[in-house]
Simulated scan of single mutants.
Amino acid sequence: MPKAKSSHSDVRTGNTAASAESLADAARAASGSGKGPPLEAWDPPFCGDLDMEIRRDGTWFYEGTPIGRKALVKLFSTILWREGDAYFLKSPVEKVGIRVEDAPFVAEDAEIEGDGAEQMIRFATQVGDAVTAGPDHPIRVVRDAATGEPSPYVLIRRNLEALVDRKTFYRLVDAGTREEVEGTLWFGLRSGGTFFPIIPASELPDG
């Protein structure tokens, strides 16, 4: 696991110090309950920023080096916390800021079950989360203003989303359908009894 290489690897505010190692230890202790860390119940002080980043492809970096151990990445993901556009790793006694290039997770696969109104889309992320899109796990699509290129996201837990990777999204498009939303015909995806619009049907090549 990443080690605090020296004092500069810690983040400090007053007498409080946090490191990747201490946060991993806290995550291990909390995960021992089998229910996952109760992040909502923790209100620790902010201890500064840690040199950790999640890239758009879902790779986690610590001090500029990719974290190669998947088990450690998954552990850190359990204590990931978001406030507005800011991301943190949180334990009962410390909260540190980290950088997230886009979304903290990547949905790298999806399974489609059923069809029509009964269709269900189950997403799997790079850290082992699995959710079925629906009212509690909505899909949204952001389109680049200049190119129109879509970036699809699915809500995983709390307010943390996964970017749906390109290969998975293109496969899902084959399961898309057209439905009217507030008087406009949209092309989108249906899952969990909910229709998620992607693009106005009039903008599709076949109209």
Results as ranks from 00 to 15, higher is better:
178 R>S: 05
78 T>Q: 12
163 L>K: 09
170 Y>L: 15
203 E>T: 14
53 E>A: 10
100 V>Q: 06
180 E>N: 07
189 L>N: 06
59 T>N: 04
148 G>Q: 02
72 L>R: 10
9 S>A: 11
57 D>F: 01
46 F>A: 07
159 N>C: 04
25 D>T: 14
112 I>W: 03
35 K>D: 15
18 A>S: 12
101 E>Y: 02
197 P>V: 06
72 L>Y: 15
131 V>R: 00
198 I>F: 04
40 E>H: 15
46 F>D: 15
19 S>Y: 00
176 G>K: 04
22 S>I: 11
30 A>K: 03
11 V>W: 03
95 K>W: 13
66 P>V: 06
145 A>T: 12
64 G>P: 11
173 V>Y: 15
50 L>M: 08
137 H>I: 07
77 S>D: 11
115 D>G: 03
174 D>H: 06
135 P>K: 07
50 L>T: 01
26 A>Y: 01
122 R>W: 00
202 S>R: 10
156 I>F: 05
5 K>M: 13
103 A>K: 08
124 A>S: 13
112 I>L: 08
24 A>I: 14
17 A>Q: 07
65 T>R: 03
27 A>H: 03
113 E>W: 08
81 W>I: 02
181 V>N: 01
49 D>Q: 10
158 R>N: 13
67 I>V: 15
67 I>T: 15
204 L>T: 14
173 V>A: 12
72 L>C: 12
120 M>R: 14
105 F>S: 02
181 V>P: 03
54 I>D: 11
72 L>V: 15
54 I>Q: 11
32 G>Q: 10
154 V>C: 00
186 W>F: 14
194 T>V: 14
31 S>M: 15
201 A>V: 04
77 S>V: 04
148 G>A: 02
